[in-house]
Amino acid sequence: MMGEKVMQIRDLHVTFDTPSGPLEAVRGVDLEVEAGELLGVVGESGSGKSVTFLATMGLLPTRAHVTGSVVLEGEQLIGASAKKMRDVRGRLLSMIFQDPLSALNPVHRIGDQISEMLHSHQSLTRRESEKRAIELLDIVGIPQPADRARQYPHEFSGGMRQRVVIAIAIANNPKVLIADEPTTALDVTVQAQILEVIERVQERFGTAVVLITHDLGVIARVADRVNVMYAGRNVEHGTIHSLFDHPSHPYTRGLLASLPRAGKQRLKPITGFPPNMLQPPSGCAFHPRCEFAADVCRGAMPELRQIDDLQSACVRAKELPRAESFV
């Protein structure tokens, strides 16, 4: 059922206590995940995209303060008890991490690591869970799954390990699967395979997938909708087609312009550096790097507004010249 909202994030704030003072990594994010869709979340490192979703999982360290609202299947997750969160994690919401080499426990067998996920939310006999683990390995495309289930992580290649991590994540058929830079640590050819596995899971089980990445190329290949994040805020949001066709926010334009494409002479990188989040710039955090910046940009922090078929947090979005289409 497309269009039904499975997860809604409202005004999420995450602040870390650091030796140099409080650091607000996420500064009021609003975001919705629809059933069965593949939502891309894109941004530079430090833009708060991973922190946002670690917060929904309740996996942030204790020195992080989280406020706002995350509703999953009608249940509020922020402020929920540890017991409640344990029940949600792995059953409704699960996560794939960036580095498959270190995401698996080196001393346990692959099959056992999958079974552990099954046992934590379903009552199965040992034999049933073993059988199910082998099925899952088969689903994510691991050959000879019965033999491989008895092996240890170090006997797998990076790409194979990431498949195992996916198998663990989908074991209980979650509503939302969060994939945090799942292909960054892998070779280019393996990247494509892993993306295929994720798409296959999404189609076969109707799982909503949140794909977090800094790579717009990856997003372009698989996502339905895209959320662009900058300095802990949502700056632009829309369907993949409208965003690539007529990006409104200068940051999104910059990201697209820095994408290598056939026939293009030169890449145009965004100038400057990501902001220091201990002292983020006033107003629109992107203004120090923005070629269209005006006085109005330094004032109030802009909210997302509907601009044609996109939502944009650029106050000057309507005045800006139309961007080159990247479709």
């Binding site: 996996l59 991490f97 580095d99 270190s102 426990n105 001393v107 934590s120």
Partner: peptide, 25 residues
């Protein structure tokens, strides 16, 4: 380490995370 986070993301109890995944390593 990352595998401790993976273990937590499974929704198993903190004690099991520590004993089964932390201690042995």
């Amino acid at each position: 380490s990352d595998y401790m986070r993976t273990a937590r993301s499974k929704g198993i109890s903190e004690r099991r995370v520590l004993v089964k995944h932390g201690m042995r390593n």
